[in-house]
Design a protein around this nucleic acid. Structure first.
Lengths: 194, 194
DNA sequence: TTTTTTGTTGATTGACGAGTCAATAAACTT
DNA sequence: AAGTTTATTGACTCGTCAATCAACAAAAAA
């Protein structure tokens, strides 16, 4: 049976299964066995490829983050002007791929993980810095000073909207979330000192 | 040794120890033994008084929530006018008692808990509803329509600021957080249709 | 004073889960 | 054909932890 070149396939299956299982459990209280079973293999194989549970979680985190990052880059590539680019970032943050219960739950739990695992913290920091710098690039032309504070509050608002999603029932409401982000900016002094 | 009337004392000690331990671990991966040891008793006694780990967490959650609730009520009692009352809510949310690493970590983990435990979810929902209605009472006189959306985004922003605190290092910066909350409101159309 | 209630713990149980290992088998190399 | 690498798992080890229990101690009630 053993076909060669299984490693990437198995790893991907494990990473996806990890996200699903974290979503199901709503926490990191997920056994390697559960993950492996959902990914269609034995627990031993999961250990074989990743070496340990910690590494599996880390890989899952990287996956979510890089997926999000890629989507942002894609959206920015076709958006022209700061206003449009800003909105592109917003839309990606609440796109169907990212704003799903599973993924939101994963994010939340990654924040928890970041409190005790340095690698996880580093990854999250990278994401936060990237988001901040993306936002700043758009905000500076629109609101000269105050762009920094605005970027920070927008970041916090996005995270808060994610956080609150986990308590809601029913399908995620991206429209409402987007409206709040946009309203956060409207009526702010436009370009006070360019 | 056995003095009578220990129950409330023991319970309080356990609840406080729980919050400290959650803060230390940064997660709910905390054993009853750890909690009991920090509270100065045997694990068996913790089980005796609470019946199980789940109940200990729930009690800790109630403690944090009721402390916050009491502080809000106290601040509202001496604040006059919607503007002042609004700011009172903000200040309590980032007061020295509530905006501490331990407590912030506890909040975060309660959100996680809420995903898998119905009781925890109920408690958090109560808090959210209360916050929302407190905010609404202040916002309606100031911004007629749009008060609802504003209350929701303020709630999300508060949660987001808490969430982001767990990644920061150094002491919590309440001033900056407060500035963001206040800025979120400034320049919004005041009282468009009263 | 006996009995009951309340407080307290050491020792134990039973379950579960991460990680290891030896063994098997297919595919590639030489 | 013999040897090496890659894939795969069942069985096992070792540790941990929630929960239980029997036993002991002191206060209160009878």
């Amino acid at each position: 049976m053993p076909k060669l070149g299984m490693e990437p396939i198995r790893k991907e299956a494990l990473v996806k299964a990890t996200i699903v299982e974290i979503g199901r459990a709503g926490s990191l209280d997920v056994t390697v066995s559960q993950i492996a079973r959902r990914a269609g293999m034995s627990p031993a194989l999961a250990h074989h490829y990743f070496g340990g549970k910690e590494a599996i979680f880390l890989a899952a985190m990287r996956h979510v983050l890089s997926l999000y990052g890629a989507e942002v880059r894609g959206a920015l590539a076709v958006a022209e002007g700061p206003q449009a680019r800003l909105d592109a970032i917003f839309r990606v943050s609440f796109s169907a791929t990212n704003f799903r219960r599973e993924v939101v739950s994963a994010w939340l739990n990654f924040y928890v993980l970041a409190q005790s695992q340095a690698d996880a913290r580093r990854l999250l920091s990278v994401y936060q810095r990237r988001l901040r710098s993306n936002l700043l690039a758009c905000l500076r032309p629109l609101h000269g000073h105050g762009a920094e504070a605005l970027a920070d509050s927008l970041g916090a608002l996005i995270d808060g909207l994610y956080l609150r999603e986990v308590l809601k029932e029913g399908p995620p409401d991206a429209e409402t979330a987007l409206r709040m982000l946009r309203d956060h900016l409207t009526d702010k002094g436009k370009d006070p000192n360019p």
